[in-house]
Design a protein around this nucleic acid. Structure first.
Lengths: 213, 213
DNA sequence: AATTATTCTTGATATTTGTCAAAGAGACTG
DNA sequence: CAGTCTCTTTGACAAATATCAAGAATAATT
């Protein structure tokens, strides 16, 4: 497994001895689609790195609706502040597909590895990436309306759309399938997109961008 | 000024020589209430540390409304990822009161100081704090409705309320003064709070908490 | 191909919050 | 203390989005 560890950017500069040690304090866990990695409020003993699969992070509002906050893809470090700050998970995480995770005993990791300048720099990099991600979540969900969110999604993910169910897209954009359907119809009527069998053609990307830029 | 630098936690472990060098590459700038520290989209050449005053960070939506994202208080490091990632400011910042800022040439800082383990650890700490803050912004504004936000604000700031204008509170909670007024009336009718001359008494804190916990 | 199940769309209606206008209440000034 | 100014409250209405229910389209299964 040390080979796998080394391939991860956080550990790429570690020597063999350190890698062996890291191997000792970590293990790989596999998850099935739909299974929960952690619940909001759980405590964290391990630093978790997503090796395979897509992980969805969400909160539940008063009405019981999921509010999707973000997605993690391999190879991301998951919620490292929860370890660093000894806090509880602020949201829940569920696998959207089968997945695999590297779980590292955090206390040992902090003591033996975090002082290493390369690791700490990578850690900063990872936190920084997360902040950018959160800023984007805020920019998207707090300042943009539904139409703008859909337009942004189309421009950024136009290619992937055919593979996704509409109801899934709607959930990711934090709106109902009905609202998504109506917005797509509107954009189609405006001549900005064309709805084909199971694909959405973008006819006027600039037109779409005016909704959110 | 080295004394002032040393009092800041990020620099508390620096030796005198380093402090003197830091002093060379930084300067203090004063701002009047209402003045802009930076606009969304600006590039950043300096690492900014808020020494005095309250700084409000916001975005503007399509309709031209301010969406307030957060507030910084002394002594906070402001938007360090913008420096670290060489990106543009994702939001604008305006002084809510007179203020003072320490501005450090970032390129030099990164080269000469960020490798110092104490500084990098403090840097991690600062990023981590920011992530917690952003998580909270998201939790508050994306998953809670207006009533819940007001209830949370009352529970967490009950004491400070008398000093603040209602319109100011409303802006901070990202709602209109009208909405705030109506919610306070509702909570008052429910017997959870009592509106006095220029103070709001919390009669039933647990009752308020049920709106958001 | 026919049947069944799932997803998507449409319409009617409800809810939440914002907008606009006017009235009320304090605070400040001359 | 009357007049003015600012802030807050109230009411009527509008906008955006959610909810619920039914129908249409697609996909899956027998």
């Amino acid at each position: 497994m040390t080979k796998q560890l080394k391939s991860f950017y956080l550990f790429k500069d570690l020597d063999d001895k350190s890698l062996a040690r890291l191997d000792e304090i970590s293990n790989v866990i596999e998850y099935k689609k739909g299974s929960i990695l952690f619940f909001e409020g759980d405590k964290a003993a391990n630093l978790i790195i997503l090796l395979e699969g897509i992980l969805q992070v969400y909160k539940t509002d008063q009405k019981g609706n999921k509010v999707i906050l973000h997605h993690f893809f391999p190879v991301d470090v998951i919620a490292e502040i929860v370890n660093f700050e000894h806090m509880r998970y602020p949201a829940s995480a569920e696998f959207e597909s089968d997945g695999k995770v590297l779980s590292i005993n955090y206390d040992t990791f902090e003591k033996e590895f975090l002082k290493n300048p390369d690791i700490s720099f990578a850690f900063i990099k990872s936190l920084s990436k997360k902040i950018k991600y959160l800023e984007n979540v805020i920019a998207t969900n707090m300042v943009m309306n539904s139409t703008a969110r859909v337009a942004k999604f189309l421009c950024e993910n136009g290619d992937k759309i055919s593979k996704l169910k509409k109801s899934h897209i709607a959930a990711n954009l934090n709106m109902t399938p009905e609202t998504l359907s109506r917005i797509l119809k509107k954009l189609s009527t405006m001549g900005l997109i064309e709805k084909l069998k199971d694909e959405i053609l973008i006819l006027d990307k600039e037109g779409l961008e005016t909704f959110y830029l």
